[in-house]
Computed example of a mutant assay.
Amino acid sequence: MAFENPTRERIKEILKSSNTIAVVGLSDKPDRVSYMVSEAMQKKGYRIIPVNPTVQGTILGETCYASLTDIPEPVDIVNVFRRSEQTVPVAEEAAAIKAKVLWLQLGISNDEAARIAADAGLEVIMDRCIKVEDSILLPGGK
């Protein structure tokens, strides 16, 4: 059976009920899409937790972690800025930390990663931009 994203109404509910977003592949360079999207989400009131093994210190004022399993607090959404073929280990880590949602950004999809996450009880969204969805579905904020 082919993968289908949740309905727009369900995505709205997910965004409304979520506070903490771990961003895998968040760059510390302000001209990168991952940085711009994460900064916009942070300004909308979401807590952004950067995940990037090549960055030591902070991004957007938040401690950067090498992996999802290093994060010492619960995560609602794992938002992924990695190539499609690199998402399976991310899905495994998202399942391991008991995140609620695995969200693969626009242009990113991987059926195996989706299956791993779904089998662990996570909701899965693929090939959608979290910032665009949030702007359309919650224009006034949460």
Rank of each mutant, 00 (worst) to 15 (best):
E13P: 06
N5S: 04
S17W: 04
T20W: 03
R8T: 04
M1E: 01
M36G: 12
P6I: 14
G25E: 11
L26F: 07
T7I: 00
V33H: 08
V24G: 00
I11L: 13
K12V: 07
S17Y: 02
K44R: 15
L15V: 06
T7M: 05
Q42P: 07
E4V: 14
Y35M: 00
I11Y: 06
M36K: 15
I21Y: 10
V37F: 06
K43H: 12
K12E: 15
G25W: 13
P6D: 06
E4G: 03
S27D: 04
K43M: 15
E13L: 10
A2R: 02
V33S: 09
T20N: 05
N5V: 09
S18P: 06
L26H: 08
I14E: 03
Y35A: 11
R8I: 01
R8A: 13
A2C: 01
S27F: 08
F3H: 00
K12Q: 13
K16W: 05
A40T: 14
A40I: 01
E9F: 12
G25V: 09
T7V: 05
L15H: 04
E9V: 12
R10Y: 12
D28V: 04
Y35I: 04
P6Y: 09
E4C: 10
M36D: 07
N19V: 08
M41Y: 03
I21Q: 09
K44A: 12
S17K: 14
G25T: 12
N5A: 00
L15W: 07
L26Q: 10
D28M: 10
N5E: 09
A2Q: 12
S18M: 10
N5K: 09
Y35R: 08
T20M: 00
S34P: 14
F3G: 02
R32V: 09
K29T: 02
E9P: 11
G25C: 10
A2M: 08
L15I: 15
N19Y: 03
L26K: 06
A2F: 01
S17A: 14
I21G: 13
K16R: 15
S18H: 07
R8N: 12
